[in-house]
Write a protein that binds this DNA or RNA. Sequence first.
DNA 1: CAAAAACACGAACGGTCGTACGTATTGTTT
DNA 2: AAACAATACGTACGACCGTTCGTGTTTTTG
Lengths: 206, 206
Amino acid sequence: MGMTDLRNTSDQRLVKGARARAAIARHATDVASVEGLTGLSLGRLAGDLGLSKSGVATLFGTKENLQLAAVQSAREVFIEHVVRPALTEPAGMPRLQALVDNWFDYISEPVLPGGCFRVATAAEFDSRVGPVHDALRDDRDEWFALLEKEIAKAQADGHLDGHDAHALAFELDALVATANTGARMGDDSAIPTARSIVDRLLGPST
Amino acid sequence: MGMTDLRNTSDQRLVKGARARAAIARHATDVASVEGLTGLSLGRLAGDLGLSKSGVATLFGTKENLQLAAVQSAREVFIEHVVRPALTEPAGMPRLQALVDNWFDYISEPVLPGGCFRVATAAEFDSRVGPVHDALRDDRDEWFALLEKEIAKAQADGHLDGHDAHALAFELDALVATANTGARMGDDSAIPTARSIVDRLLGPST
DNA sequence: CAAAAACACGAACGGTCGTACGTATTGTTT
DNA sequence: AAACAATACGTACGACCGTTCGTGTTTTTG
């Protein structure tokens, strides 16, 4: 008896708080997609979720930690809606096409009320220094690496002749990001325009 | 005698205040390019310029008016550095090329400490409603209209075959805007990459 | 079951915010 | 010179901010 040989009990010891943290961070992504990461406030989040301000403060310690948690939560939302569904497609051209399709869906019928979290927050923090800037930069790098990897695979299969993988990834990101902002600014042609350019880029190559 | 037939004396009666307003608004664009239009504060601006908070408040009345003044000031800065120097070139392809060149210079060695004001603030206010959103949308529309006009003229002169003017304007804006954010996020390849794509788009057509 | 850690809260702190008011001071017009 | 509007300031207000402290409560650990 007493065979309490569980090693990583630390994971279970935190489940309660971790769940609360995740719920708060998830709502923080919603708010930050509209108001920005700087627009986040502990009192606002606590009020929205029926918690006390000090309770939220205890869970995250500092506002910067809350912002970092929101960035991670937004990363998970993006993976869940854009990346993961595309992993059922074979690597290379089909998966790249699925990534782009899912991404357009993601900004057309926004999961977050403010549209694409990455687009909103990158512009907000691109001129600042500190952990939040760094986390957003890492997130951007990760996304570009994934795009480039699929492009390279597609090229190894004979697609996308004459394209530089890095440049094509940059161009795809630019078009979708600007479509996101344009659409939210009231330009109904932004998403269709970007869509058609992307189709031309990925479509009848050579 | 008494031939005081000046009509618009109201313009001169306000010159003093107008000059102060312009100076404050100009500094507000610097601050907002980094901290965002929401990050502006009357006290911060007053402190930077050696004025009193209430003095600044009297000049603009409300923070929203200050934000609107910053948007207009940023528009003038952009025109001064990107548009006006390009007007010496003949309309059409040469002027379009000059606009793009000046624009790349504008983000490469930023006039405003936070880079391109339009990129930063569009993402910040794209999901909000109100006069500031509308002013930024109008500014975007004006810029797109200018780009499309020059593209159409270039096409009338036989350049840029097979391109849709609206789509090409969108693509140019997307590439430069994303280059601006990417460069500020620490990606040294962002501007050269965008530059080469733009050169390919505008260069050896057909 | 007892000990310990994590959690959640109310209250309060100093600070900054936007705004409003009253009042000199400046600049311009009549 | 007198009248007046615009400008600039000090002060104050209420609201919200992030953070900290002390204290119960809950959950997990030993």
